[in-house]
């Protein structure tokens, strides 16, 4: 069950392209910014990809884990003076713990309740950030978050940040691929399509889901930590339900449960949002209608569409 040769080649070409891409855009702060945001959203989309793609559940609370990652990274680097990278790791672990903790009640319940409880979680986190002013500074937010320092190297420019994000995207993807091809990934997929049958086959549904939530929120937290130091300032309104819905849309547009899906979905939406800024008032209306239309016409996202095209072509070749 390894990669096929074609998958390997496509993957390598994509990575090579990703590595050389900023060389052409180095002069454009505008595009470098979009690339970096897309990168952070790719990681964030991978986090929901676990929950939706591997367990079939919908979360609209990912912004909560993103916020935990962002605020804890900021707090550890600014408040305690810890180096960025250990701080990022600790923040991601904290987000993972929050995910497991939320998973304890959430994994006992069916799909409908799950959406609700994640929504509640995201709102609880946002409300706490908003109101716990002594620590989070409420609506003023946390400002002047220092850029990451790697030994003597200060990762400050958008160009340098691009490679930092790219590194973490690769880590995220490697982990995603290795989870999918492991006993944990199989247990999740079996639980997704037949929880009771999987249970009878010896799969503990609770631990399977908790592991899923843990990995998922770890990466949401990681994305949050990257975001905090990249933007340099964070405030509660950046972490509302709309962000969680964005992540959901990115997951669906790309094609959930696949490895290329989150990359395609996040990149497409970051750019689409940017280009539609001209029609700002109507943008969100189109966006909402777009979600419904995607569900009607391409429920398996762009990856599903590609797969269908491929199937049509290969069935023609046979004839």
């Amino acid at each position: 069950m390894g990669f096929t040769k074609r998958q390997m080649i496509v993957t390598l070409i994509c990575f090579a392209a990703a590595v050389v891409l900023p060389i052409f855009f180095r002069g454009s702060r505008y595009y470098m910014n979009l690339f970096n945001l897309a990168g952070i959203f790719i990681i964030l989309t991978f986090s929901l990809n676990y929950i939706h793609g591997y367990l079939g559940l919908i979360s609209i609370g990912q912004a909560g884990f993103f916020a935990i990652g962002a605020y804890i990274t900021a707090g550890l680097t600014m408040g305690l003076g810890i180096n960025y990278f250990p701080a990022l790791l600790l923040a991601s672990i904290a987000a993972a713990l929050a995910g497991v903790l939320l998973g304890l009640p959430a994994s006992r319940i069916g799909g409908h309740y799950f959406v609700l409880i994640t929504l509640a979680f995201g709102e609880i986190v946002r409300l706490i950030i908003l109101n716990w002013k002594e620590v989070t500074h409420g609506t003023n937010g946390v400002n002047n978050i220092p850029p990451p320092r790697l030994g003597p190297l200060l990762i400050e420019s958008r160009f340098a940040y691009y490679y930092l994000v790219l590194f973490f995207i690769i880590v995220t993807m490697v982990v995603a691929a290795s989870v999918r091809r492991s006993k944990y990934g199989r247990s999740m997929l079996a639980t997704k399509v037949g929880e009771l049958a999987a249970n009878v086959m010896g799969i503990n549904p609770l631990s399977t889901k908790l592991i899923n939530f843990g990995i998922s929120s770890f990466f949401a937290g990681l994305a949050g930590g990257l975001y905090a130091s990249y933007i340099g300032s964070i405030s509660p309104e950046a972490f509302d339900v709309d962000l969680s819905v964005d992540i959901l849309t990115m997951t669906l547009v790309g094609g959930s449960g696949t490895i290329p899906g989150p990359v395609i979905g996040a990149t497409a939406l970051v750019f689409l949002k940017e280009w539609l800024r001209a029609v700002k008032e109507y943008y969100m209306i189109i966006y909402g209608a777009g979600i419904v239309l995607i569900m009607i016409f391409m429920p398996y996202g762009i990856m599903g569409l590609l797969r269908r095209v491929r199937d049509v072509i290969s069935s023609r070749e046979v004839r």
């Binding site: 079996a190 399509v193 037949g194 999987a198």
Partner: peptide, 28 residues
């Protein structure tokens, strides 16, 4: 009860997990 989306082999592999011991970190 077939685990849809998994191959025949993977369907059977799922049933082996109950006899395994390697933890998540080592797996990743």
């Amino acid at each position: 009860q077939v685990f849809e989306g998994l191959s025949v082999l993977e369907n059977v592999m799922v049933a082996r997990h109950v006899r395994t011991s390697v933890n998540l970190l080592s797996t990743i």
